Deep mutational scan, measured.
Amino acid sequence: EETGVRVELAEEDDGEKIAIKLWLRIEDIKKLKGKYKDNEAIEFSFDLERDVPEDVAQEMVESGYVCEGDHKTMAKAIKDRVSLIKRK
């Protein structure tokens, strides 16, 4: 499903790190509610043992990086990427 958002690794995952750096990349602004630039990327750290995707997305909303209306879309994108990383 195309959401307009993609999360990718910002650094090589060696399988050892607990906290990883990720990029939340805006790919299609028409599919989102907030005002973003095409190909805008937000770099953030995610602790694989402690962080919760919904909470991280909420922090982005509170910091003004993400529109409240896009919270669920961002949280799902983060959750999907993190579950792929954890499965390795």
Rank of each mutant, 00 (worst) to 15 (best):
G4R: 03
G4H: 03
G4V: 04
G4L: 02
G4Q: 04
V5D: 05
R6F: 01
R6C: 03
E8F: 01
L9I: 10
A10R: 06
A10H: 08
E11P: 09
E11L: 01
E11T: 03
E12V: 11
D13F: 10
D13K: 05
D14G: 08
D14V: 10
D14E: 11
E16S: 11
E16P: 03
E16R: 12
E16D: 10
K17F: 01
I18N: 14
I18F: 09
I18P: 14
A19Y: 12
I20D: 06
I20C: 11
K21H: 05
K21T: 03
K21C: 00
L22T: 04
L22H: 06
W23H: 15
L24N: 07
I26N: 13
I26F: 13
E27V: 15
E27A: 12
E27W: 07
D28G: 07
D28T: 02
D28F: 01
I29N: 15
K30Y: 05
K31R: 10
L32I: 04
L32M: 11
K33A: 07
K33H: 13
K33M: 03
G34V: 02
G34F: 02
G34H: 02
K35P: 11
K35R: 10
K35N: 15
Y36M: 07
Y36K: 09
K37I: 08
K37R: 12
K37T: 12
D38M: 12
D38H: 13
D38L: 13
N39F: 05
N39K: 14
N39M: 10
A41P: 14
A41I: 15
I42S: 01
I42D: 00
E43I: 08
E43A: 11
F44L: 07
S45A: 11
S45H: 12
S45V: 14
F46L: 02
D47C: 03
D47V: 00
D47L: 03
E49G: 07
E49P: 01
R50F: 02
D51H: 00
D51W: 03
D51F: 01
V52M: 09
E54W: 06
D55M: 13
D55H: 14
V56S: 02
V56P: 00
A57N: 00
Q58S: 10
E59H: 11
M60A: 02
M60I: 04
V61G: 01
V61E: 01
S63G: 11
G64I: 00
G64V: 00
G64S: 01
Y65L: 15
Y65I: 15
V66C: 06
C67I: 03
E68I: 07
E68M: 08
E68N: 05
G69A: 15
D70M: 07
D70S: 02
K72G: 14
K72N: 09
K72E: 15
K72A: 15
T73A: 13
T73F: 08
T73D: 02
T73P: 04
M74P: 04
M74R: 01
K76A: 09
K76C: 06
K76D: 10
A77L: 11
A77Y: 05
A77I: 11
I78H: 00
I78D: 00
I78P: 00
I78Y: 01
I78A: 03
K79R: 14
K79W: 07
D80A: 08
R81D: 02
R81T: 09
R81C: 13
V82D: 04
S83Y: 03
S83M: 10
S83I: 05
L84Q: 14
L84D: 11
I85K: 01
I85S: 00
I85Q: 03
K86Q: 12
K86E: 07
K86H: 08
K86Y: 06
R87D: 06
